[in-house]
Design a binder for these strands. Structure first.
Lengths: 249, 249
DNA sequence: CAGTGGTCTAGACCACGTC
DNA sequence: ACGTGGTCTAGACCACTGG
């Protein structure tokens, strides 16, 4: 006679979803840190008292969702943003021939501002919340191509300084993760065509009124918590914004 | 003593990949048609002489890739394009408040042309190949918002006529599938900001020189075969181009 | 009710990475 | 050699759908 019946557990949710929840919890509370290896699948079986198949289903899912990375023969690791594969997951600007390169970033402005109604709504902030606001100029192939205006909730990034941004060696999302424990797992972008204003025209070296791509990005962490609002202005003479779609389940 | 050892089969590929290949083959050769149910998982076990777990892995994959759709209690179906979920998989224009609506389409031009070098390269065509070329105007909320220029290889769509396009009741990709056996499973899009030329300005009701979004799309069928080249021009005053990204495995 | 997909078990052997 | 994830088996029971 078996002890626990299969199907649904007492909590009402499938076992593998319970396991997923517990694994994410262990990542969030710091038991397993980004870049570190988590226990082997066999040990997870014992820890959660489920079978291999259930562990595999949970880890498969989390791997597909970007929280974990499997390496055959080595182990399963908590995802970090300092892997090559992340460089272009959220950076969608490529040269017209498809060539991808990493931009040279220059910090142009840095300040603390009060959240306007739009930012408040997009970032789910309370009235009166304050934001860090900074502007980056990105060069590709020695030419300015993108101007980013980035807004971060002060609450999540309280120790952020201009110097931190200027002296960072890694990508911005790597900094969010390693410096502030904020892991970006998903972004939503809206793209529009606009005319260059004086500031953007000057920074990108084009005429006022020339067409620019405006990308409005919200970056989400675990549980769909919005953590960054970004306005990007892209010069698309020689570079393009790139987006793929798959018929998915 | 077991008969077949687990791990790799004689062909060198994992069993579940062999099963995936055979299922896709049965879809391609018409044994199972779009919208129809395929045999139950138990029957597939017998047919391919593998266990449930292997069948599930194969069907899971194909479901995730958009070839199959599972319905608990009913069966597994070959994907079609006449499901709601497809309407906005490849149509990325939404109102600024996030509202999605289906566009009213009007055919503006229809002709047969010789493929230019760009189209030849993008669609992997031989020199001298011919294309159907047509222009659609799309209205959203009673205002023109998108102008599409669409190029299709004559070879794949030989029976296409202006009347077919004008009288279609379904989406374009539904027509490709039901009328020509061409199933779009993936698209690649490049987005740029351009100035409206005379034709586009007139169709969209804006001034020449106003900024427009230009979307260059290649649509792929099975095995990454390119089947459509499309240039979209989008007016982004009240509508936006929408694109999501996930950190994926 | 019977049949479907959804979840789960308790193992097995294989291929890969490290030592 | 050893431990990891990758693949696979031969079932089981559960939840849903339809007649």
């Amino acid at each position: 006679m078996v002890e626990r019946l299969v199907g649904l557990n007492p909590s009402g949710a499938p076992l593998y979803k319970e396991v997923k929840r517990k694994i994410i919890e262990s990542i969030r509370n710091g038991e397993w840190k980004p870049g570190e290896v988590i226990p082997s699948e066999k040990k997870l079986c014992e820890r959660f008292a489920v079978s291999m198949g259930t562990i595999r289903k949970a880890v498969d899912d989390l791997s597909g969702e970007g929280f974990l990375i499997r390496h055959q023969g080595r182990g399963t690791f908590v995802a970090t943003h300092n892997q090559d594969r992340y460089l272009f997951t959220f950076f969608h600007v490529v040269r017209q021939d498809g060539h991808k390169e990493y931009p040279k970033v220059e910090l142009m402005e840095f300040s603390k501002v009060k959240a306007d109604p739009v930012a408040m709504s997009m970032l789910h902030l309370d009235p009166g919340s304050r934001l860090f606001r900074f502007v980056n100029k990105l060069e590709l192939g020695r030419n300015p191509v993108v101007v980013d205006e980035i807004l971060l909730p002060e609450q999540l990034f309280s120790r952020l300084t201009e110097r931190t941004l200027r002296e960072r060696s890694a990508t911005l999302y790597q900094l969010y993760q390693e410096g502030f424990g904020v892991t970006v797992v998903r972004t939503q972008e809206r793209v529009r065509a606009v005319s260059a204003d004086a500031l953007r025209a000057r920074l990108l070296g084009v005429k006022v009124g020339d067409p620019l791509l405006q990308v409005i990005r919200i970056a989400f962490s675990f549980k769909d918590q919005p953590v960054e609002l970004r306005y990007s202005y892209v010069l698309t003479h020689t570079y393009e914004y790139c987006s793929d779609s798959m018929a998915a389940s």
